[in-house]
Computed example of a mutant assay.
Amino acid sequence: MTSIRGDIFLFPVVWVAISSASILVVLSNEPGEVCAFWRLFLSSLILLPLWIQAKKHVKIHHVASGIALSLHFILWMRSLFLIPVYTSTLLVVVYPLYSLVIDILVYKYRPSLIQLLGFAGGVTSLTLFLGVNRLALSQGAVLSLLAGLSVTLYFELG
Score class of each variant (00 low, 15 high):
G118Y: 04
T152M: 13
W15N: 05
L71K: 03
L27Q: 08
G148T: 01
L40K: 04
G140E: 03
V151P: 01
G121E: 05
V85K: 07
A68G: 06
S65K: 01
G131S: 15
V132G: 02
N29V: 03
I60Q: 08
L90K: 04
E30N: 04
V132T: 08
V101Q: 02
P12N: 07
E33Q: 10
Y154Q: 08
E30F: 07
S44H: 04
N133Q: 12
L135R: 00
L82V: 03
L75W: 00
L91R: 00
T152D: 07
L80Q: 07
P12I: 13
G131C: 11
N133Y: 11
T127L: 15
E156V: 14
L69D: 08
I83Y: 00
S125A: 15
L130I: 15
M1C: 10
R78T: 11
K55R: 13
S79K: 05
T89W: 06
M1W: 03
I104L: 03
S20K: 05
L27R: 06
Y86A: 12
G32H: 04
Q115S: 14
L137D: 07
L50Y: 11
V34T: 15
L71E: 02
V92M: 01
V26M: 12
L50A: 12
A68H: 05
A141W: 00
L153K: 00
W51C: 08
I23R: 01
L42W: 13
L45Y: 10
